[in-house]
Design a protein around this nucleic acid. Sequence first.
DNA 1: CATTTGACTTTCG
DNA 2: ACGAAAGCCAAAT
Length: 105
Amino acid sequence: MAPFTKRVIRVIQQIPAGKVMTYGQVAEQAGQPRGARQVVRVLHTMSRKYKLPWHRVVNRHGEIVIKYEEGKYTQMSLLQAEGVKLNTYGRVPLKKYRYVPISKA
DNA sequence: CATTTGACTTTCG
DNA sequence: ACGAAAGCCAAAT
């Protein structure tokens, strides 16, 4: 697997409960600002084998973007279970919940 | 090897 | 603020 993929995994595992990151942010932290789609792929592939908090990753508006309705509900539940409130439009207020990593390793 | 495929992002109207 | 179109890049086919 590409080193980028590994870094993506590590970044995702570093997201604390009750916080979220955008796909773009994760990609950026993993060293590839344009790699949002690869982050998506990693989530798909690895969330089965590794235990990744895929539900803490949303699109740049804090929206739940998942392709299947069931997945959306799942993610909503998990987030709310961690104390994340969704606004009227069903979005996560990134202003409050966006996780900003400090180290850049 | 060429084409398709995304749980995305940016830009333009 | 919203929708459409183009851009991006690694994996699967």
